[in-house]
């Protein structure tokens, strides 16, 4: 056990500050353990979201030493020992209290996206034949735990606050999962271009870097979707010239 200093942001939508706590850290502690100890021993009403504490539910997203992380999967002994550990709420979403942010916008965006619509079943019992090879691509996207760290880090949302015209990486992954599902019949290309604003993404890959599930968001979801948008929406000849000139979007 050793004593470690934590600086935890506390406050509400009117403002707040980093508060300093000294706590004993047990072997194998993750940041969420530390927050729980602070809550149990020093600040009973410290607000934090968490559920599974095993990296499976995506509830405990926060910014640890400035990086978007799941608190339950961030080990204290892997952070620099010579400085205090700061824990702050995700910056892209409005503050509710302390480490809790209002992520309801994500739920609204998802509900607005055209739903999954399967083709007629292959068999009388309502089942479909699908090859493992074909399901593996969308299965990568279905690993998403909706922690919204990709949304938090995306500069289109974080810095430019374009929440009203840009759905964000999480929702492109969601669309990609349906678009690449072997039995889906929906077409969401126009929606991607218009309401979901995929064009604002300029492929900086920040989302891919922070994904705790290791989903290759940019390369495997966003770029193929952008290609579909381009294929369907623009003159193929003009696109070819554009590609030859090397000024993709």
């Amino acid at each position: 056990m050793k004593t470690t200093t934590f600086k935890v942001w506390q406050g509400n939508s009117d403002g707040g500050e980093l508060k300093t706590y000294e706590i004993e850290v047990d072997q194998g502690y993750v940041v969420l353990d530390a927050i729980h100890r602070i809550q149990a021993e020093q600040a009973n009403d410290l607000a934090v979201r968490w559920n599974c504490k095993a990296g499976k539910c995506g509830s405990c997203s926060a910014e640890v030493n400035g990086s978007p992380k799941l608190m339950c999967m961030t080990r204290v002994d892997e952070l620099p020992a010579d400085q205090p550990i700061t824990v702050e709420p995700m910056r892209t979403f409005p503050i509710v209290k302390d480490l809790v942010t209002d992520v309801s916008w994500n739920y609204e965006v998802k509900a607005s996206i055209k739903r999954f619509s399967p083709k007629t079943a292959d068999h009388g019992d309502g089942s479909w034949d699908m090859d493992q090879y074909d399901v593996e691509r969308p299965q990568e996207f279905r690993k998403c735990i909706e922690c919204f760290l990709c949304q938090d880090v995306c500069h289109v949302l974080r810095d430019h606050q374009l929440h009203d015209r840009f759905a964000g990486p999480r929702h492109y992954v969601y669309v990609a999962n349906m678009e690449m599902n072997p039995i889906d019949t929906g077409d969401r290309v126009a929606e991607l271009r218009e309401e979901l604003g995929i064009g604002y993404c300029n492929i900086t890959k920040c989302c891919t870097k922070v994904c705790p599930e290791g989903i290759t968001i940019t390369d495997n979801a966003i770029i193929p979707l952008k290609e579909r948008v381009v294929d369907q929406s623009y003159d193929p000849l003009a696109r070819l010239i554009k590609l030859v000139k090397g000024s993709g979007d």
Partner: peptide, 24 residues
């Protein structure tokens, strides 16, 4: 149970497959 599991794929679930393309 079998019907309840199969209907999930009609709602977007993607289970691992057998070599024949059925739910593994």
């Amino acid at each position: 149970a079998p019907e309840r599991v199969r209907e999930l794929e009609g709602w977007g679930a993607l289970m691992d497959r057998t070599p024949d393309g059925l739910i593994n």
